[in-house]
Design a protein around this nucleic acid. Structure first.
Lengths: 150, 150
DNA sequence: CCAATATAATTGCAAATGAAACTAATGCTC
DNA sequence: GAGCATTAGTTTCATTTGCAATTATATTGG
């Protein structure tokens, strides 16, 4: 089935808002905290998962490829924000572990980044639009997850 | 001001739905038509603009950087989908022009791509959610545009 | 009118990316 | 418990990207 004009318009707006906001936020984070948005994402995911994740869990959480995670962790480890730790229960495995410095850096950046989310995104939406985004996109994401799991 | 939990959730869902759907759609387009999503985007924008755009207009329409446009057009010209044409009214300028082959390729790919948009996105949204996405994100994009224009 | 400045597009270089090959350890089956 | 398939993670290679510098043309202020 073909999408209606409104579905198409909504999809294009989602694409455009993502591109504009993501690049603006990346720019702001680099400017203010010398932290790429990708790094912020990794720090955030680690932090909300108790500070340690296996590489493949990090990949699933951030939606970066395994390859990408390997190299993000490389660079972030060089910058002292995370550490690698071999898994004791599975000797193939590696944990990415948030360091205290990484936690500090995240805390420092979180304030202005959250402000950015509000300023660039939240400020322009009505409560019922936010609710609609949340419920609708949750279903979209869910369906995509199931598809990917196949 | 800090975003409320629902704003934050909505933002994260927007990020996640974009990543999942864009990569799925890119994959499907390559699979079925050997056409990266970026190329589709360029063909689409050219087509909806009468088949010819100055490089900087293409950049504004697609939100790819000027550099990126130069090189996308390079590769697509090598594949015969577009042509470069020096602008007669401004000799610095270059038009990217859709070729008949490019138009054909777009037409061929559009069908399955539109199906994808419906299947992955539209099918999971209620009419009022689509309307909310459309109106809300239009305001978000607008605000971001004005900011960028500064 | 012409020097200074701005704009259009490309290019060189360093960094980031993705797919597929590779290494190592585990699990599964007979 | 030996062999085969699977899973975890990294690495290699070719491609892509982004920033800053470059080239060429247009515009503007004195």
């Amino acid at each position: 089935m073909k999408p209606s004009g409104t579905v198409l318009a909504a999809w294009r707006l989602l694409l455009e808002s993502h591109r504009r906001l993501a690049s603006q936020m990346d720019h702001d984070l680099r400017e203010a905290h010398d932290l790429p948005l990708d790094w912020y994402d990794v720090l955030h995911q680690l932090n909300t998962s108790g500070g340690r994740l296996r590489m493949h869990e990090l990949s699933a959480a951030t939606l970066f490829s395994r390859t990408d995670c390997t190299r993000l962790v490389d660079r972030m480890a060089a910058a002292g924000l995370v550490e690698r730790e071999r898994a004791s229960e599975d000797r193939r495995g590696v944990y990415a572990v948030l360091t205290p410095a990484g936690k500090d850096r995240l805390r420092a950046a979180a304030g202005s980044h959250l402000d950015d989310i509000q300023r660039l995104f939240g400020d322009h939406l009505r409560a019922e639009e936010i609710a609609a985004l949340e419920s609708g996109l949750a279903r979209v994401v869910n369906a995509a997850e199931n598809l990917a799991a196949t």
